[in-house]
């Protein structure tokens, strides 16, 4: 990859999302110039209106699939991409808009839009991996700057990215922070949540909200029991799992558990 003659091309595409993950990439500042030295940014509308045609060596996809049109579009993008990486909670689990999956979407449309007839939407918001093969999923709401640069660097170097999928607790303890659940009785999703954020909330003595989704082996039932013993109701516990990553299978299953 040191030969500068033919740089690999990078494309960034957006689906249903808030653009926060793309902004995280744009905010990389110090890393962006070296990145531009190593790769050709071929399609990144948030950064530039200059667009090169595919195929692309690496494609980052932000957002979830919520319309029939997008369900088609992601198929085309997959065909144009050698490596496809979904970035952020929307692309990896459906995002906050996947709360629609818990309800009947037609009920919302009739209330929200003056002319519901113009709305062409799917009943669900789903992860990119539910539609096409994904080579790597980068978690977070939004994604972490260091992690997105690490994934791109690893791809350029042909090595495995250093993105641990263990619990947030491992990183929390490595930082020397004090467990908010044990020392303060605060509900924290850290034990079932994928590391990667840098332990933002526990560092401010707040419980983890699960922005990075389920960790590799989430024992959500054990966490429910842990919280219940500290006085939380089943409904309160279910609500905690119904956040940014509500549609991630492990969190959704635990949210629904009391109803079963």
């Amino acid at each position: 990859m040191n030969q500068k003659t033919a740089k690999p091309t990078l494309a960034v595409f957006k689906f249903a999302s808030c653009d926060g993950c793309q902004l995280t990439l744009l905010n990389c500042e110090d890393a962006l110039l070296p990145l531009a030295d190593e790769i050709e940014i071929a399609h990144f509308l948030e950064a530039s209106s200059a667009v090169l045609p595919g195929p692309y060596d690496v494609t980052l996809v932000e957002g979830s699939i919520t319309t029939p049109h997008d369900a088609q579009r992601i198929q085309e993008i997959r065909k144009q991409s050698k490596k496809l990486i979904s970035i952020g909670a929307c692309a990896t689990a459906g995002g906050i808009q996947a709360l629609r999956n818990f309800k009947n979407v037609d009920d919302f449309i009739s209330v929200v839009y003056a002319q519901p007839g113009y709305i062409d939407t799917l009943a669900t918001a789903t992860a990119i991996s539910e539609h096409v093969r994904v080579d790597f999923e980068l978690r977070g709401c939004p994604i972490d700057q260091k992690q997105v640069i690490e994934v791109l660097t690893a791809l350029l170097q042909g090595r495995r990215p250093d993105i641990p999928s263990h619990s947030l607790c491992v990183d929390c303890k490595q930082r020397g922070l004090v467990c908010v659940t044990v020392a303060q009785g605060t509900a924290c999703l850290g034990p079932v949540t994928h590391a990667g954020c840098g332990v933002l909330c526990p560092a401010c003595e707040r419980g983890c909200y699960g922005c990075f989704g389920p960790m590799e082996t989430p024992n959500t039932r054990a966490l429910r029991t842990t919280w219940a013993r500290r006085g939380m109701t089943d409904a309160e516990i279910s609500q905690a799992f119904k956040g940014i990553n509500a549609n991630a299978p492990a969190f959704r299953k635990e949210h629904d558990a009391p109803k079963r």
Partner: peptide
């Protein structure tokens, strides 16, 4: 059934000594 597999016990244990090593490269390699 009760274990979260969160790893907290190993992190706080004063004798647990396991470490991993990772290579970090810059963009140019």
């Amino acid at each position: 059934e009760r274990c979260l597999t969160c790893g907290n016990c190993t992190m706080v244990c004063p004798t647990c000594f396991c470490t991993t090593v990772e290579e970090i490269t810059d963009l140019t390699g």
